[in-house]
Design a protein around this nucleic acid. Sequence first.
DNA 1: GTGAAAGCGCTAACAT
DNA 2: ATGTTAGCGCTTTCAC
Lengths: 328, 328
Amino acid sequence: MKRPTRNDVARLAEVSGWTVSQVLNGRSDVSITEATRARIHAAAEELGYRPNHTARALATGNTHIVSLWAGRLSPFYALVLTHLRREAHGHGYRILISDIEESASPLASLGPVDGVIAVEHAEWAHNYLDQVNHMRMPFVSIGAYYLADTDYVGVDLNGGVRDAMDHLVATGCRRIAYACTGGDASGDEPRAVSYRSHRLGAGQPVEFIDTCGSRAGARVGVREFVAAHGRPDAILCHNDEQATGVYRGLRDLGLNVPDEVSLVGCDGIEEAEYLDRPLTTIVQPIEEMCALGWAYLSARMRNPALPPQHAVLRPRLSLRSSTRDVAV
Amino acid sequence: MKRPTRNDVARLAEVSGWTVSQVLNGRSDVSITEATRARIHAAAEELGYRPNHTARALATGNTHIVSLWAGRLSPFYALVLTHLRREAHGHGYRILISDIEESASPLASLGPVDGVIAVEHAEWAHNYLDQVNHMRMPFVSIGAYYLADTDYVGVDLNGGVRDAMDHLVATGCRRIAYACTGGDASGDEPRAVSYRSHRLGAGQPVEFIDTCGSRAGARVGVREFVAAHGRPDAILCHNDEQATGVYRGLRDLGLNVPDEVSLVGCDGIEEAEYLDRPLTTIVQPIEEMCALGWAYLSARMRNPALPPQHAVLRPRLSLRSSTRDVAV
DNA sequence: GTGAAAGCGCTAACAT
DNA sequence: ATGTTAGCGCTTTCAC
């Protein structure tokens, strides 16, 4: 009827609860006779005993669960989750999925976790940083937007955007628009900032296309933009997902990529390579970001007193056929 | 230094631990003076008290966490996870991600969960079903492959494949190949079975393309297939993701979709609509699957003695331009 | 209206 | 080589 407990096993094997723990946890530092071990294993088997994770967590003080604070589960997050899951599972940890966008403050109802990994949470992290630090929960933030007061693995998208813009200019693009969520209201998001400063630095105007943060929005957004302002020579997109929407919108208009409009994305999701015009994109070193992020979190969980852990990785511009070749 | 406990709050507010519980859990069925309530809230606030999820779980017997057994985090899983996360969070539950393919038996180390949702786990579910049932853990399986002995939300991909095949035949396709992981070794996977029986029923040969389960594999696989056997009139793919790989492979060969080769996918991921030739696909009613799956699991967690809960949903063939129009 | 005590299933010292 | 004791932080029952 009820799930068997450790004591049920102990009773059946005629030993104490303690012995059961030692044996089933495979402790080799304590000596217990083969006979006893065997009896215990047999009893556990017979009862179908499974240790109670919760009780163990309460007793030891750690759950071996980390929370992943993610937003909408885009292809980018799927990638991040893939790598993070591998890291975590490989080290005996599990991942709990939170939705940063849904709850007012994920801190209020933080699950039974030993640590938190926040991915790409610009505004959010900023607002709640104090609380995060105050609760002394091991916390690492991964992504383009990072804050000095937590452990972080940053990505220098600024550099990535610069490379992309330079490449567009080098291939003869004059009007370069930026497509992102919210258009020119995109605030201090690193990519938008870099785009803006690059343009202004070159004495060029900035032009924003509002994607509403989705593929479908990007598709519509680019059509409206072109209808209103004519076609730019190139469009830099906030991410690959939105870039596919922009791509589709351009095709809807009968515009050729890259001959009429060059297109650049960001992230490096697999899908971007499979378009009819494989997408030139700013590839984030996602695997490395995750590996390092895990390493940081894991070290912090082991030793909360560790000095700050920081890294900033460089993205890589992958040139594909959605942009033109540099003239030789 | 240490995280404050309920007793710390009690001490500070000069009440008992019990009172703190009642107040902070917002119990309205017990009468406590406003003054006491206020003192307790103030004390909790001052200490930065957060209830300990683990201790509560141990005391109440449930964790409000459910495990999602998923395989590789493909775009399809991202969709499933999106909907499932919404359902779970909306009901005060969290989701723990497991990797079915990695661990020998996820049962061995089932986390601190109240229930399990398994998505698309054909072979696996089959092998471990006994154990699942034996441990009396609320369990619902979602997907094309389902087993009578657990709660499930099935999808009649058999019907979906039939519709797709009929449509291909109606648009003049004779040779229709099936692209999937492992090629003709795909065993009893429902789509493969339906394809096979449809072909054989029509007195036609079956032809398999091995995708190795990935986009890249599909791309290469289709090229090798065409090199060896010439081009089929149509290719039905195990899922949309692999279909994009096949699409790319066909473009590599300079073959036109759908004029030379019609293409059909399965799942209904967003990306499939954004190809240059939007993909005709068997759309799974993912949102409904997840909503119903959650409803089943949640009912089962509330009452383990409930009679079996079953449903089989129908997918919908979405006709887009990767297949030809039916002649009028 | 509030408190005291028992217990959830396990681990970690300290015995023997 | 094995058992005993005391918690982990909370909920729940019963007493005042």
